[in-house]
Write a protein that binds this DNA or RNA. Structure first.
Length: 404
DNA sequence: TGGCATTATGGGACCACATTCATTG
DNA sequence: GTCAATGAATGTGGTCCCATAATGC
């Protein structure tokens, strides 16, 4: 029995919420993080099996344990990066996933329902509203934006893009079939999905016009604000993960050693597997853009960003780092604007959408967090000259206490 | 339509000092 | 290992200033 839940103090804690700095059982995790939109954005991950106090960072495939960075280092030290040691990065999720979805996500870790039952959490979990059927919900995904926002997992050691990836890559093996385009999706919706870049015409990515409107610094479109911006429901969970469902994205993939070419062990290409190390893709544009390897960088980025919607808004930069995801991928307008009448009509709503976004951004910038109330209290009574603090006893032109 | 001037907006810098953190004995 | 003393680092808010964007002519 591990540490008890920080919230109920009764059940075994299983996940760690960085935003709350709390270890929670599955039931309380659901209850706490379904309270409001902000709490749903909290990113959580598994607890370290060793110290049971820190968020697990990697999954040791050899020992079948989840370890935080410290414990991982303590147990494996420098050998952790050596060839042969198989581990997998465990990143975080947000939203309010159901027990079944958690079970599928972390099937390589544990039998969630079993653990939930063991800890009497299943009752609480059963209250989760996400469609638990596990069947296709192309048109029936949850409406409350509590989509399972899951940071993907990254295979870290000794990977190659061998045959084991082919199921992910599709028959062509180039990744283009991974997420086939769904014809009936609205253009914007398509561009919001990982499917968007999977158009059949690969030349599209060689044409700079395809990304003319790719204003990375102007929007932070995510699952949660997409509907607010564009007034339509965003894509459904099952659409995101296509027919293979969520399983195909979080299924444990056998780690294979580096090939015999004596090349440095390479992490699995994010574009190919959606087990993503986004930064690697971003930091290595030449490789990412290599069309012979899966899909172009932009394609990967636009798709990957969808998996981290829970990390926007009030998420801090630290959150991004914690999850191994560059904050950059959380911003970015859907890069693909296919031709067609629906697109032209969407142009009219674009301005209003941008207006709404800017207004929201304007409001949001005032959400300043006060870390030390005592310092604020001190600053609130400090005398100033033209807004600047002045030494005690010196002349001032503004005294908050006198309100003059 | 392009060029220029004016206005609006956003964001960083500045200030003092209590508080917090890290180090040392 | 614990505690106290010391020094360094941090963060707080109102205003100013500059760069950029938007607007008008």
């Amino acid at each position: 029995m591990g540490a008890l839940c920080d919230f109920c103090g009764e059940q075994r804690s299983m996940v760690y919420c960085r935003s709350d700095a709390a270890s929670l059982c599955l039931s309380c995790d659901r209850n706490v993080h379904s309270a409001n939109a902000l709490s749903r954005r909290h990113t959580r991950t598994l607890l370290c099996d060793r110290c049971v106090s820190q968020p697990a960072a990697v999954r040791c495939l050899e020992e079948n344990t989840s370890l935080c960075q410290n414990c991982d280092w303590n147990e494996h030290g420098a050998a952790s990066s050596a060839a042969g040691y198989k581990r997998q990065t465990i990143n975080c999720y947000s939203g309010c996933p159901s027990s079944a979805e958690l079970s599928r996500i972390w099937s390589f870790v544990m039998d969630i329902p079993a653990v939930a039952a063991e800890t009497n959490c299943e009752e609480g979990i059963s209250m989760m509203n996400i469609n638990d059927s596990g069947t296709s919900n192309h048109c029936g995904a949850p409406e409350d934006s509590s989509l399972l926002d899951i940071a993907s997992t990254t295979l870290m050691s000794d990977l190659s893009t061998g045959d084991k990836l082919k199921p992910l890559l599709g028959s062509s093996g180039d990744g283009m079939d991974l997420l086939p385009l769904t014809a009936d999706l609205p253009a914007r919706s398509v561009s919001m999905t990982a499917k968007a870049p999977c158009v059949t015409d690969k030349n599209m990515f060689n044409d700079g016009n395809a990304y003319e409107d790719f204003c990375v610094d102007d929007t932070d479109l995510t699952f949660e604000n997409y509907e607010e911006l564009f007034g339509t429901s965003h894509i459904q969970t099952e659409q995101l993960f296509d027919d293979a469902g969520i399983d195909s994205y979080f299924e444990m993939k056998e780690v294979v050693p580096a090939d015999e070419t004596n090349e440095q062990p390479k992490p699995m290409r994010p574009e190919c597997s959606n087990v993503v190390s986004v930064d690697s893709g971003m930091s290595n544009p030449s490789a990412a853009a290599d069309s012979t390897h899966c899909i172009p960088a932009r394609q990967a980025i636009s798709g990957i960003s969808l998996s981290f919607s829970g990390l926007t808004g009030e998420s801090s930069a630290g959150d991004f780092q914690d999850c191994g995801v560059s904050s950059m991928i959380l911003m970015g307008e859907p890069p693909w604007h296919p031709p067609g009448p629906e697109n032209s009509s969407a142009g009219g709503s674009r301005d209003s959408a941008l207006t709404r976004y800017k207004e929201k951004k304007k409001r949001r910038k005032f959400d300043k967090k006060i870390r030390y109330a005592s310092r604020k209290a001190r600053a609130d009574v400090r005398k100033r000259v033209k807004g600047r603090f002045v030494k005690a006893g010196e002349a001032y032109d503004y005294d908050p206490l006198s309100q003059t």
